[in-house]
Design a protein around this nucleic acid. Sequence first.
RNA 1: CAGGCCAGCCAGAUGGUCGCGGCGUUGAUUUCAACGCCGAGGAAAGUCCGCACUCCACAGAGCACAUCGCCGGAUAACGUCCGGGGCGGGGAUUCCCCCUGGGGAAGAACCUGCCAGAUCGGGCCACAGAAACAUACCGCCAUUCCAAUGGCAAGGGUGAAAUGGUGGUGUAAGAGACCACCGGCGUCGUAGUAAUACGGCGGCCAGGCAACCCUCGAUGGGAGCAAGGCCAAGCAGGGACCAUGCCCGCCCUUUAGAGGGCGGCGGGAAGCGGCUCGUUUUCUUAUGAGUCCCGGGUAGGCUGCAUGAGCCGAAUGGCAACAUUCGGCCUAGAGAGAUGACCGUCAGUUUGAGAGCCGUGCCUCUGGCAUACCCUCUCAAGCAACAGAAUGCGGCUUAUCGGCUGGCCUGACUA
RNA 2: GGGGGCGUGGUGUAGCGGCUAACAUGCGGCCCUGUCAAGGCCGAGAUCGCGGGUUCGAACCCCGUCGCUCCCG
Length: 124
Amino acid sequence: MKQKYRLTRSIDFKRVRRLGRSYAHPLAVIVIGDGEAKNPRIGIVATRSIGSAVHRNRVKRRLREIATQILPELQESKDLVIIAREPARDASFLEIRSAVIELLERAKIIVTNDHGTGRSAYSH
RNA sequence: CAGGCCAGCCAGAUGGUCGCGGCGUUGAUUUCAACGCCGAGGAAAGUCCGCACUCCACAGAGCACAUCGCCGGAUAACGUCCGGGGCGGGGAUUCCCCCUGGGGAAGAACCUGCCAGAUCGGGCCACAGAAACAUACCGCCAUUCCAAUGGCAAGGGUGAAAUGGUGGUGUAAGAGACCACCGGCGUCGUAGUAAUACGGCGGCCAGGCAACCCUCGAUGGGAGCAAGGCCAAGCAGGGACCAUGCCCGCCCUUUAGAGGGCGGCGGGAAGCGGCUCGUUUUCUUAUGAGUCCCGGGUAGGCUGCAUGAGCCGAAUGGCAACAUUCGGCCUAGAGAGAUGACCGUCAGUUUGAGAGCCGUGCCUCUGGCAUACCCUCUCAAGCAACAGAAUGCGGCUUAUCGGCUGGCCUGACUA
RNA sequence: GGGGGCGUGGUGUAGCGGCUAACAUGCGGCCCUGUCAAGGCCGAGAUCGCGGGUUCGAACCCCGUCGCUCCCG
């Protein structure tokens, strides 16, 4: 993921989490707020409750992969924070991706036809 | 062939599509694109030790404190490693006993725990016991009156531990009082670099705990890569504390008084995160310097930062740890933190089913039927670990599905 | 990066190396009461986180390890 699409600053995380709307799922929570940049930015959180460094990094890598796939469908000037929850450690990639897509549809950020199969964002 | 053990190595391979980090080249020129190369571990982990490196002064002295402690060696250093010593523990297996489940003895290869000093001194040793470090309860013997006094420590009893044990000589009774053997201690000799072992001689010398204080010896200055260096950007100040000498020398101004500058002594503050010494920097009557506190601003870039006590191979020296020499190689450098997703193919491993081979058994015997383990093949299902560098390195400890190679020992069988 | 503390019945805590590990609360039974609470009596409940060592003897001392927690930067 390119640097301009990343949300890194601690103050940005705090602003999005305080002012944004949140959507929850057993595997992840997504918080969406208005962004300050012209393009959408995505930040990823994996807390220590996920597990050791190996598990945290794997969850973050998978969420980054998902974020890269959904990035072109996002509206401009939105900041997203994706927070992984504990069951995401043992979930498969497809399960995590359907969870994220479902949350984004509930947030009316993106619209897909066949969510659940998890193929729309991957087909090209 | 079965079992036990040790050392070293590997940590699925390969192809395709999309994606990530670094370096180089080229093209665009603040963030981009294309191509090529490279891109986690044996523990990267825990952070339990030791170093390098950087700053504090060039790393100094003493005290305090902390750590270590059989002997010799290795190393940059270590609490690590190697070799040896002493005391203990474990071990496949073999033998014996009761008897079919245990008990006892021996015990290969090998693994493993501990190790300065108890005549400097202090402290502690519950309960029991007369007594726990200084003694005599029941006792024994003599004098003798039943008691008392004196001698003794063999036997009994308590305990984890009570002047070493067994046998004899000896005696009123006894005792290392004496003798033999064993154990301990001291000393001498031999072997060994040494710890220590063996032997001779002396002679019985008064418990244990220093993982209690302590003594002796050795080591350790403090802080840490957010160390440290360079650059850019940005802001607003306020308060408190503080020594300043009728000192000395030189120079300048000046009629003189006096004033100024530099240096020394004295004094203040800080470096100096335990204290003292020592030492360095700075200030010392100036609208100054320093220290501390509150407040304000910035959380950006480059460097340190990847050629190293480096890795691989060989030779030589050494029992070994390791060292030396020669040749070859370059092997991650992120900064919220780079390895992921999907599809194939081939392997690994466990279980189940089927088939085959060998052997065995049966029969109606050029053949047929049945069949345990191992091995081979096919199919299906499952498993595929522990775990992610953040300045680097040497160890220790812990987690870990499995696989490969080499070696040692014991037992059985065959020749 | 640096430093400290804790782990003992279900829970919260005591515990100078020496008894059968103590106390409160909770739990179970009985008494009391018309009933409940309070109160009284009795009882169960502990691998002292785990593994080694020192010692005659370890919850306590030493080493290692696991987990939790706090402080400084």
